[in-house]
Simulated scan of single mutants.
Amino acid sequence: MRPSFTDPVEVQMIALTKSRPQGRGPGYCQELPAARQSAEAARRLVETALSLWHLECLTDAGILVASELVTNAVTHTDSHRIRIAVRRTGERSVRIGVTDTAPMPPVPAVPAATLSTNGRGLLLVNALAERWGTELHDSGKEVWAELLSEPFQ
């Protein structure tokens, strides 16, 4: 679906998407408003990057991880803006990170016996990622997850 250039939020999201070095390997990042709707933009960024890198096998896990990390940043912090970055860390691996302004690392929920649909984001990230963690910065933190594809046959 092509973006509508009459929507100022969509134009702003497009303007802030940049391809730039993200440490080791190529990467893409996007600054977004801290709003639930930003999860969709994050999913599109991850899906596009994985397609460009021919790592479509990671798409389902990647868009779910991005969605959960963005949702956590929006729900559990008072950030006004967040930043998503996806970086290729190896031939078969990518790192997806979401930066917000909250100084405290996230606390994974304890698995409950109830059928609650809330509080399981980091449990999903843990199940899908090869590894994940948090890096604290002067202006907040980045919660990241590294995904690894199966070896190429």
Results as ranks from 00 to 15, higher is better:
R92Q: 13
K18A: 13
R95D: 00
S38K: 10
A73I: 12
M104V: 08
V74Q: 04
D78E: 13
L32W: 01
I14R: 15
P33V: 15
R43A: 13
I96L: 07
A109D: 07
P108R: 08
V9L: 11
L52N: 04
S38N: 06
S38W: 04
A102W: 10
V70F: 05
A35C: 03
A49C: 13
H80I: 08
S79F: 09
P21F: 13
G25Y: 08
T59H: 07
T89D: 03
V70L: 10
G62Y: 09
L55C: 02
Q30Y: 00
E31T: 15
V65P: 07
S38M: 09
Q30V: 12
R44G: 02
D7Q: 14
E31H: 14
Q22A: 08
A102F: 11
K18P: 00
D78T: 15
S38H: 07
T59K: 14
I14Y: 12
S79I: 09
F5K: 03
T59D: 03
V70P: 01
R44N: 08
S19W: 12
S93Y: 01
L45G: 05
R24T: 11
M13K: 08
S67H: 12
S4F: 05
K18R: 14
K18I: 10
T99D: 00
L32I: 08
I82A: 06
R81G: 00
E68D: 11
V9I: 15
S79Y: 09
P21E: 15
L45K: 07
E68G: 06
H76Y: 15
Y28T: 13
P26Q: 15
S51R: 13
I84R: 07
P108M: 03
A49F: 15
H76L: 09
P33L: 15
D78W: 10
L16Y: 05
V94F: 05
Q37T: 14
V70T: 11
G90P: 01
Q30A: 06
H54V: 10
R20L: 11
R95L: 09
H80V: 13
D78F: 12
E91S: 10
S67G: 15
P8C: 15
D100G: 07
F5D: 00
L64C: 06
T89Y: 01
L64M: 08
G62K: 10
T6Y: 04
S79A: 15
R24S: 07
T89C: 06
A49L: 01
E56H: 11
G27M: 02
V9F: 04
P21R: 15
R95K: 04
Q22F: 00
V107D: 02
A66E: 03
E56Y: 02
G97L: 13
F5I: 13
S51M: 06
A102N: 10
F5M: 11
I82Y: 01
S67K: 05
E31C: 10
R87S: 06
W53C: 00
T71Q: 11
L55W: 00
I96D: 03
E31W: 12
F5N: 02
I84G: 03
I96A: 06
I96R: 08
T99H: 04
